[in-house]
């Protein structure tokens, strides 16, 4: 079976989540990867170690802008060239916007936010997250072409095999594919991006004001973690919206989530309950977060956080 996997890079390095998608695809059939924009050939070839036989690379510079319609056109063209029966993509802001368009272009059924490998014992059934992390659903996908977007950490990376062959792919883009013009990008540089982070330090109203975030950044820096916040904090503009984790914000699934001064309202928990380990630090012993956390500390954030930073540093030495 021919499987197409769309891979993305960040600063020229293929994302871990994209390599997971290659590994996922290799469990279903023979993987061809498709990539776009400025990525070195040697970096693309790396996907071979995770199961891709070949990478189709579209180096059209206009695609560096992450244009939704053009990306969909590229993926559909690649799928047609390799007669892909299933297209696998790891979730990202671009993939979430592109997957549906790819599905229509390739006459595929589409399932988003897949949490596991498919069960093919009787048809094709996948598990996906629903009710904003509060439940899972098992979905039967009809026969024919399929598009799947997968969540982070659905498969363990398996490294073996040789480099993939890299070939160019050209697409006859239409003007409509570039109908949406990017006129500016505002992106934090240097920091660890929240949706990709293995560790997250998050803080809420318990910090009393934006001027107190330095210790949160220090804790995050010590751990190599990304910073996040609760909805009220983002609503009050203490922190930017792209740090807001919860029901209507970013959903995270890190190895470690440390919540400081966040009570743990059900809407916040919906954004974090896929985390592997949760630590809650709150001065209120009845804070609901303690019911959702693995480890809890009852105490004043302004005393606990500096002690925690010190303990982590001691441990690292």
């Amino acid at each position: 079976m021919s499987i197409l996997v769309f891979i993305e890079a960040d600063n020229g390095v293929i994302k871990k989540s994209s390599l997971e998608a290659v590994t996922y695809g290799s469990k279903l059939g023979d993987v061809t990867a498709v990539a776009m924009g400025s990525i070195e050939e040697s970096e693309l070839a790396k996907t071979g170690k995770f199961g891709a036989a070949k990478v189709l690379h579209c180096s059209d510079e206009r695609l560096n802008d992450g244009v939704i319609a053009a990306t969909a056109a590229l993926i559909a063209e690649a799928a047609s060239q390799v007669s892909a029966s299933t297209i696998v993509m790891s979730r990202s802001s671009l993939v979430d916007a592109v997957a549906a368009r790819v599905a229509i272009k390739t006459n595929s059924a589409v399932v988003a936010n897949v949490q596991d490998l498919p069960d093919t014992s009787n048809g094709f059934t996948v598990k996906r997250g629903v009710f904003t992390g509060k439940a899972f659903a098992f979905v039967s996908v009809p026969d024919g072409n399929k598009v799947l977007t997968i969540a982070k950490n659905v498969v363990q990376l398996e490294e073996s095999g040789a480099d993939a062959a890299v070939e160019g792919i050209s697409v006859n883009f239409s003007d409509a594919d570039f109908g949406v013009k990017r006129v500016g990008v505002h992106k934090q540089e240097g920091d660890i991006l929240l949706p990709e982070a293995d560790k997250v330090v998050s803080a809420g109203r318990g910090l009393k004001g934006p001027e107190n975030w330095q210790m949160i950044e220090d804790l995050a820096g010590t751990l190599g973690a990304a910073t996040a916040c609760s909805k009220p904090v983002s609503d009050m503009d203490w922190r930017p919206h792209h740090e807001h984790v919860g029901q209507t914000g970013i959903k995270v699934a890190p190895q470690l989530y440390i919540a400081v001064g966040i009570s743990g309202a059900i809407q916040h928990l919906a954004g974090v309950n896929s985390s592997k380990v949760i630590v809650a630090i709150n001065k209120d012993p009845d804070a609901p977060f303690f019911k959702a956390a693995d480890y809890g500390v009852v105490g004043d954030a302004f005393e606990v956080v500096p002690k925690l930073i010190e303990a982590i540093k001691n441990n690292q030495n």
Binding site: V130, A280, A292, A293, Y295
Partner: peptide, 17 residues
């Protein structure tokens, strides 16, 4: 596609204080 069944996430264990 059709939704065949649903499942709740596993219960969290006791929070260790």
């Amino acid at each position: 596609t059709s939704y065949d069944s649903f499942e709740l996430p596993p219960e969290k264990g006791e929070c260790k204080m």
